[in-house]
């Protein structure tokens, strides 16, 4: 029964993908100009020619490294800021406005500023971190403020040490929010990192290649690079979900 259900779900997904690819093909035929909207076959050809080049894989690896470095730094920074804001009202008053400001500032403004301040390769790292940290901070702060006050009262009544309270009462309460923030942040890191690469054009980067494809009017190649970004983003999301699921299994 379960197997049939899974098979039917896969078939539905395949039909949905085929439907959108067919629609893409029809739209491309209707437009009739590869420069405006290349068809799926043409994009696939471009992708095939790209994957046979060593620079394609180096670009992917370098982009992956930059974005993951920024993502991890953003998660760590977000956790540290949340910890500071939750434990001290003074630190909360100090950091909250600046984090809210960072969250509200358009990513393009930060990219332009960062291009003045640092090397081209550092811009995507900083952007990913700057986008992810407020997401993690916001989720953790929200979760902390809506925590179970009964457990707080229990911890006080039984005179739990600060460490025990943090380790056993606060952290387990925050973990689901942290996991959700990690997943949401991954998508944001990826988008902001690629945007930063497009604007700052570091050597060996997916974003730079997207920019060059646009400049040289190689639209099928632009689509091919974009397709590889989407594929990588999905792969990373699956990886993070699996890591979280494995951690959940270990906890149980």
């Amino acid at each position: 029964m379960e197997k049939r259900k899974a098979l039917s779900k896969r078939i539905s997904s395949l039909i949905a993908v085929l439907f959108w690819v067919a629609l893409w093909q029809l739209a491309s035929m209707a437009v009739g100009k590869e420069l405006i909207l290349p068809g799926p076959l043409s994009v696939l050809k471009s992708l095939w020619s790209l994957v046979r080049q060593g620079s394609f894989w180096t670009s992917i690896l370098m982009t992956l490294l930059r974005i993951m470095l920024g993502y991890v730094a953003g998660v760590v920074l977000g956790c540290l800021l949340a910890l500071a804001c939750c434990t001290s009202d003074v630190l909360n008053s100090l950091f909250s406005p600046i984090i809210r400001m960072v969250r509200a500032t358009p990513v393009a403004s930060f990219i332009i500023l960062a291009m003045l301040w640092m090397s081209k390769g550092g811009v995507p790292v900083l952007m990913s971190a700057l986008i992810v940290a407020p997401v993690v901070w916001g989720n953790l702060i929200e979760s902390y403020s809506s925590r179970d006050r009964d457990l707080d009262e229990m911890a006080t009544a039984y005179r739990l040490t600060r460490w025990k309270r943090f380790r056993h009462v606060i952290v387990p309460n925050l973990l689901p929010s942290l996991k959700a923030a990690c997943l949401t942040g991954l998508g944001f890191a990826w988008k902001s990192g690629i945007a930063a690469e497009v604007l700052s054009q570091p050597k060996l980067a997916i974003g730079s290649n997207i920019y060059y494809s646009k400049v040289y009017l190689e639209t099928p190649e632009l689509f091919a690079w974009t397709a590889s970004v989407i594929a990588l983003s999905f792969a990373l999301e699956i990886l993070v979900k699996k890591l979280i699921a494995r951690r959940n299994r270990n906890e149980n």
Binding site: D150, L151, E153, M154, A157, Y158, R159, L160, K164, H168, V169, P172, E251
Partner: peptide, 21 residues
Amino acid sequence: IMFQEDRLLPHLNARENVELV
């Protein structure tokens, strides 16, 4: 104090809940 609600930590087993205090 034993509260009206159990106020146990669900990620700890029975022994760990008692050991905590």
